[in-house]
């Protein structure tokens, strides 16, 4: 069983390999929605999580058709994320673990995104682009760790899109509307394109896009230009990492993976470098319990455990700080 609570989403899922192939038996989520035009408030989000925790947990067990005693272990998202939110999931997982005597398994939320996406797509040794509200990182596995080849120096791409949306008066997440609005234009406005080596920077792009909005340029044109410029930056650093690592697979994971234009750009790059693109299915691209349950199960089988006393949350836990026991 896995408990997710890093940011907006409180989720619980049960995953099993008892029938052979990994199977997601249940995946229940309840998402905190901030007011239109506002970002996530950690305290409000954690209050939401506290309120929905019990019903979500019960439903996850019911949907999976299992009793809590059938569960082998409880995994939780230990970080990175918002402290108040992480603590709710950690408390739920610790309680279940202590009361029912189940092993407690710490999971890194970012790695869990990648591992679930890899499991669902059958990617075996991919270069990964993880893009969401909390992450913008290019990583590949080597010698026991996920190694970072490039990342954002400031905002994540999801933050940039959401903050731009809020400036335009839209609720977050803005991803779907952003895609729809962008598709209605083909006017490219001049925006800063900032690639620094293998890293990208989105803050200048966000500021300039907001300025265009303030200058009363069409929202669709600004969305289109923001998309073309921002995603081209991501595509460029992916291509650089791909040329450097010579991987034959590229996996795109995280909420922004749902964007078809980004997928199209990466497909073209993969074509040039003889690699294959794998994209996480849309329903599992966002934060969910299933990523924690699956990665927890991998950890369980590889002997990963944590004592309750040592299980405090890690708000800024980098994925390249985790020694991986389940990959060769």
């Amino acid at each position: 069983m896995g408990v997710e609570s890093t940011a907006h989403t409180f989720g619980v899922s049960v995953v099993s390999t008892r029938s052979g192939a990994p199977t997601i038996l249940s995946d229940v989520r309840d998402i905190y929605r901030p007011e239109k035009g506002e970002g996530i408030h950690p305290r409000e989000a954690s209050r939401h999580h506290t309120q929905v925790a019990a019903p979500v947990l019960s439903k996850a067990l019911k949907d999976a058709g299992v009793k809590i005693s059938d569960v082998d272990a409880v995994a939780f998202s230990q970080g990175p994320g918002l402290g108040p939110c992480l603590r709710v999931g950690a408390v739920v997982a610790r309680s279940v673990s202590a009361y029912y005597g189940k092993p407690l398994i710490p999971v890194n939320h970012a790695i869990a995104h990648i591992e679930l996406a890899a499991m669902l797509t059958d990617a075996s040794d991919p270069l990964v682009l993880l893009v969401s509200g909390g992450h913008t990182v290019i990583t590949a596995f080597a010698a026991r760790r996920w190694r970072v080849f490039g990342e954002t120096l400031d905002l994540t791409v999801g933050q940039m899109i959401d903050q731009f949306g809020r400036a335009a008066g839209y609720a977050s997440p803005f991803g779907r509307e952003f895609e729809a609005l962008s598709n209605k234009s083909n006017v490219l406005l001049d925006l800063p394109y900032t690639v620094k080596g293998n890293d990208v920077s989105f803050s200048g792009l966000l500021t300039a896009s907001k300025r265009l909005l303030a200058e009363r340029r069409g929202l669709e044109d600004v969305c289109f230009s923001l998309r073309e410029t921002g995603f081209a930056m991501l595509a460029e650093v992916v291509e650089r990492a791909l040329a450097f690592t010579e991987k034959k697979e590229v996996l795109i994971a995280g909420g922004v993976a749902a964007n078809l234009r980004l997928r199209e750009m990466l497909t073209q790059i993969c074509g040039v470098h003889g690699a294959k693109l794998f994209a996480v299915p849309r329903e599992y691209s966002g934060d969910c319990g299933a990523q924690i349950a699956w990665n927890g199960l991998q950890g369980l089988e590889a002997g990963v455990r944590i004592d309750v006393e040592k299980s405090s949350v890690k708000q800024s836990w980098r994925l390249d700080q985790v020694d991986i026991a389940w990959r060769r």
Partner: peptide, 13 residues
Amino acid sequence: EVERRGRYKKQVD
């Protein structure tokens, strides 16, 4: 400072 500021070393948002 750059490395401290990098993503995942600080809180989201």
